[in-house]
Every structure is written in structure tokens, then in C-alpha cells.
């Protein structure tokens, strides 16, 4: 990937909650961990040397257990939380250097956020909620009403304009949250466990709405979740946090095939590997055609198994989206691929 693809660059970001931060920062840089810091200085280590490049028009997922610092990280991007030390470049501007006025401008124009608990304004109607980001920019009322109406329709809530959030179901409320975030036309979308509070069916529906919108809008999305299935479904890249440190940042396939440590292995141990691993992750690279049928690089193992079951002895040929042959898969590869890897200590941290 060329450098110009990167929209957000996070460099050596540290966040320590509590007093005596200078002292604490020194300790953390010298390798003192979260627990020890809490014992010694009564400070909570929020983020520990985070380095992350987020690519334009992609969905960057951030995963981790509760308390691992996901919300803390995403709130640094629009400076709802101030860091202890570090750099965050958006389009080569260090947003940590913006003054109060520039920060307001930046929040109005460049980033918008969707919240886990929706965080709608209960005293405003749906249309006022959706238009909020525009109204605070002092855009004339008829203009923001028009835009808000468009986005309400786009998320499938036409007819609910004059309702209050309290009258809508959770799924509908989060559509309002999504419409509110999209209405400002900000390039970057921050989503902090946006779908976690919804039940599975509605959640899946919301994921589809998001993917559908993304195929059209090409936003840069930072999406936080602790659900691996969700991460695999929508993430172009997945970063994994543990106790404020980043343990892995890579392609979703890479996470499954090569978990960086036991923590990551633990995350992926319960997924249905056949349903998420793609051909390209397990194929043997070759440019020659094999005896079996031809399948696409991104087909999942489950589907390949279905195709191969007709004649298991013939390896399938794999081709990429351009139609060039890139490899082959034999039955033995399939079985090997579906097996859970023994946790490897290999260091492939991004």
C-alpha cells in the first residue's frame, strides 16, 4: 500500500488516567504494565504506545475485551479524550495541536460518531436529531431539514420525522444515530460498539445497512466491536487491543490464520473457521491449472468443500478477481485449514 492511502496516522499514543501523569508515563515507557501502574501510582493505563495507520475509504475494526481501551482510543480521534502523549495525524494535520475553535470546526466537518447507547437527544424529534450536526453549524433551517429528511429516508425511517426517540425501538433509534452521523457528510465515521446493544437479527440487519451505505459512500470508518463475527463481516482490517496495548493489526484472514498470541487465539477459538477462512489464505501458490473446478480466491472453505465433495481427489483451481490463476487447494489443505492452529508465539504485530 502506498503512503497516500493512509488517512489517519496514530503515532506513539499514550493515555494514562489519573494524577501524576508525567511520572506514570515514564514508568509505562519503561515497560511497567497496567496492574503494576494501578498498584504503584493509582493511575489507570488507558492506552500504551498505540501505532496505527487507518486507510482511506476502508473499515478499520478495533477489537478487544471490555476495558482494553477501545472506547478510549476512538475518543482520542475526535478529542473527546485528551492524550497523555502522542500524535494523531488526519490528512497530515496533527489534530492534537488544534485550538478550541479549530477543533470545533474539525468535529463539525471531518468526523462524526455513532454511540453504543445511541446517545440521541430525547427532547428532540427524529428530524431534529438527524439534523443536529448541521444545525450546530448554523446552516439555514430549510437546508438542514432537507438533508436530514434525505438521510431519514435513506435509513428507512420515512414517516417518523416528528416522533421522539423514546417512541422508537432500539434498532430504529440506532438508524437515527447512523443518519445523524451521516448527515454532516463527514469523511470519517467513528462507531463505538454501535450495534452491540441490538439483538442479533437487528444487528445483522444494521451491519447490512452499513455495508450497503459504505459501498456507495466510501467513508473511512473506525468500527469498534467485541464480536469477532461482526469484525470479520465488516472489517477490511482488524486491530486487537489488550490492556491498552495493540497486540495485532492485520488483514482479517491473517488474524485467523496467524494469531499473534494466546489472547488473540482465545478470541478466534470459537468461530466457525469453515465459514470465514477464504481460499487465498490456505491455497498453494501456482500459476498452472489443476484438474478440479475453478473457484474464486475469496470463496470460503465451506463452499469449496461443497464443490469438492463431488470428486474429492481433484484439487480445485483458484483464480483472482481478474480471472488469473493464482493457486490450488487439495482436500488435505481444506482439512488442515479448518483445524484450529496451536497458538503460536510468532511476532507479527503490526
Amino acid at each position: 500500500m502506498s503512503k497516500s492511502d493512509t488517512l489517519i496516522k496514530i503515532n506513539q499514543l499514550y493515555k494514562i488516567f489519573g494524577d501524576g501523569q508525567d511520572n506514570a508515563l515514564e514508568l509505562v515507557k519503561n515497560g511497567v504494565g497496567k496492574e503494576e501502574l494501578l498498584d504503584k501510582l493509582n493511575c489507570v493505563l488507558g492506552l500504551n504506545n498505540i501505532n496505527l495507520n487507518i486507510k482511506k475509504a476502508k473499515i478499520q475494526v478495533v477489537m478487544g475485551l471490555s476495558g482494553s481501551g477501545k472506547s478510549t482510543l476512538i475518543r482520542h480521534l475526535n478529542r473527546l479524550i485528551e492524550p497523555t502523549s502522542g500524535e494523531i495525524l488526519v490528512n497530515d494535520t496533527d489534530i492534537l495541536k488544534l485550538n478550541a475553535k479549530e477543533l470545533v470546526q474539525f468535529r463539525q466537518n471531518n468526523m462524526s460518531m455513532v454511540f453504543q447507547k445511541f446517545a440521541l437527544f430525547p427532547h428532540k424529534t427524529i428530524i431534529q436529531n438527524v439534523g443536529y450536526g448541521l444545525a450546530v453549524q448554523n446552516i439555514p433551517k430549510d437546508e438542514w431539514i432537507e438533508k436530514a429528511t434525505k438521510w431519514i429516508n435513506r435509513v428507512g425511517l420515512e414517516g417518523y420525522e416528528t416522533y421522539y426517540p423514546g417512541q422508537l425501538s432500539g434498532g430504529m433509534q440506532q438508524r437515527v444515530g447512523l443518519a445523524r452521523a451521516l448527515a454532516t457528510d463527514a469523511e470519517i465515521l467513528l462507531m463505538d460498539e454501535a450495534f452491540s446493544a441490538l439483538d442479533p437479527l437487528i444487528r445483522s440487519e444494521m451491519q447490512n445497512i452499513l455495508l450497503d451505505l459504505q459501498s456507495e459512500l466510501h467513508k473511512t470508518i473506525i468500527f469498534i466491536t467485541h464480536d469477532l463475527d461482526e469484525a470479520l463481516k465488516i472489517g477490511d482490517r482488524i486491530a486487537i487491543l489488550r490492556d491498552g496495548s495493540m497486540v495485532q493489526d492485520s488483514d482479517p484472514q491473517e488474524i485467523i490464520m496467524n494469531p499473534a498470541d494466546d489472547y488473540v487465539s482465545d478470541f478466534i477459538k470459537d468461530i466457525n473457521r469453515a465459514r470465514v477462512i477464504q481460499a487465498k489464505s490456505i491455497m498453494t501458490h501456482t500459476k498452472t491449472k489443476s484438474s478440479g473446478p475453478v473457484v474464486q480466491e475469496n470463496m470460503v472453505l465451506e463452499d469449496i468443500l461443497q464443490i469438492m465433495s463431488d470428486d474429492p481427489s481433484k484439487p480445485v483451481t483458484i483464480e483472482n478477481s481478474k480471472g488469473n490463476i493464482t493457486g490450488k487447494i487439495e482436500m488435505a489443505n481444506l482439512i488442515e485449514g479448518m483445524k484450529r492452529p496451536k497458538s503460536q508465539g510468532t511476532n507479527i504485530t503490526g
Binding site: N78, L80, L103, V104, Q105, F106, R107, Q108, N109, M111, S112, M113, F115, K117, F118, A119, L120, F121, P122, H123, Y132, G133, V136, Q137, R180, T184, L190
Partner: peptide, 27 residues
């Protein structure tokens, strides 16, 4: 006043007065 609602207002770049009259006092 609900911290979440205030955080949302902040995230959309509302200033102090907009938060006060648009969110805090009404709620």
C-alpha cells in the same frame, strides 16, 4: 443531564452555548 447526550453534542462540534441552550437546559 445524561453524559452521553452531552458527548454526542460535543462530537458534532457544538459550542458551550449551543450545548447549554440546546441540550442541558431543555433536559
Amino acid at each position: 443531564v445524561d453524559k452521553d447526550a452531552l458527548e454526542a453534542a460535543d462530537s458534532f462540534g457544538a459550542n458551550y452555548w449551543q450545548k447549554l441552550f440546546g441540550v442541558q437546559i431543555p433536559l
